[in-house]
């Protein structure tokens, strides 16, 4: 056994192997505060809505938080911002701890390997990811796991580019940030993040149209589609404009950060895009079109979109954890064989 964990600004997901299947557990990384009443708590319990009661408040947690925020016209509170623990949210640490524990569950045995995603330091802000990474590692180790951080972009490579010797460019469009990693035979050659992702798109569209951010997020996740031509006006019009701007921003930064020397001469690099923010229909075509227009300093063999963009990062963590666990088992077997031979 071993586990992978995607610690995302919008969703926290775990992955583990069950026979030939990979099982994912997902929870939205947000909560909303509502006034306590006996009736409200009874209704929540009866409807199996995940909630926490504290004093005269009830906190609805996870997937239901967005629905409740829209119904009660409140804003969801988010334990993470820009890919790391939020410094605006006082309850960030206990909420993250509860959601992570709920998603990963108890370790199957002491020191079970678990790889959790951690973003690269962003190149467009002075945010440090260290406090976030060390805090999540401490939660998991305290639960009894042997946890290791894995760069989010590298996790994408492990998940999506196994058939290409883990060589290529992986781009994870998350909610809080976008992570990019160029890997050559599973060795990261270049990795960076930018502090823009789906949340930035939602916030800009909300501001432009005077719509609550949670409403914009719901519209984006429900039936929003990207296309080469869209109509102006409304939330959908604003989302299209800011989505295109996000793509251009990420591509511009790839052009700036990747040197020709990073890529072996004559090598055609496969590009894979994934992450929850890449989910809208039409994303892949729009990204390809903008990438072709850019002055990328290496040859690209093709652009693919992950089949299950929400699950890529957790799956990559699982691949890394299982590989690490195999090495540990092999070493333990060798030590046991050597001990037996010496007797």
């Amino acid at each position: 056994m071993a586990k992978g964990l995607d610690v995302g600004t919008m969703n926290i997901l775990s992955a583990q192997q069950d026979g030939n299947d990979t099982v994912f557990v997902q929870q939205r990384n947000s909560f909303v505060e509502i006034e306590y009443s006996d009736m409200a708590e009874q209704m929540l319990s009866r409807s199996e809505v995940l909630h926490i009661r504290k004093d005269d408040k009830v906190y609805v947690v996870g997937d239901d938080a967005l629905n409740f925020a829209n119904i009660f016209n409140k804003e969801t509170r988010r334990p993470m911002k820009h890919g790391i623990l939020s410094n605006d949210e006082q309850s960030a640490i206990p909420m993250m701890k509860l959601i992570i524990e709920q998603v990963v569950g108890e370790p199957a045995y002491p020191d079970e390997k678990l790889y959790f995603s951690s973003p690269a330091d962003p190149i467009d802000s002075d945010l440090s990811t260290l406090y976030h990474q060390k805090t999540i590692e401490s939660f998991l180790d305290d639960m009894g796991y042997d946890s290791e951080p894995i760069n989010e972009g590298m996790s994408v490579i492990y998940s999506e580019l196994a058939d290409n010797n883990f060589t290529g460019l992986g781009i994870s469009f998350g909610a809080g940030m976008t992570n990019v990693c160029l890997s050559y035979y599973a060795v990261p050659v270049m990795k960076f993040s930018v502090a823009r992702g789906g949340d930035w798109v939602d916030e800009q569209a909300a501001r432009a149209t005077g719509t609550p951010v949670d409403k914009v997020t719901s519209i984006k996740e429900d039936d929003f589609e990207l296309d080469f031509t869209t109509d102006v006006g409304g939330v959908e019009g604003a989302l299209s404009i800011y989505y295109e701007n996000l793509l251009d921003y990420v591509i511009e930064n790839i052009v700036t950060e990747v040197d020709e020397e990073d890529v072996e001469e004559g090598l055609d690099v496969p590009v894979v895009v994934t992450g929850g923010t890449s989910s809208p229909s039409g994303f892949e075509a729009l990204f390809k079109d903008h990438l072709e227009d850019a002055n990328i300093p290496f040859s690209i063999s093709g652009v693919t979109h992950a089949n299950e963009p929400l699950y890529s990062v957790a799956r990559g963590g699982l691949v890394a954890a299982r590989s690490d666990e195999d090495i540990d088992h092999d070493e333990a077997d060798e030590e046991a064989e050597a001990a037996a031979a010496n007797e």
């Binding site: 006082q90 206990p94 509860l98 524990e101 805090t135 305290d142």
Partner: peptide, 19 residues
């Protein structure tokens, strides 16, 4: 605070989380 089967403690004054 408890959520389903899991629980945690926190100090709202200093952020202590017993981890």
């Amino acid at each position: 605070l408890s959520l389903g089967d899991v629980s945690t403690v926190t100090c709202s004054r200093c952020g202590y989380a017993d981890v």
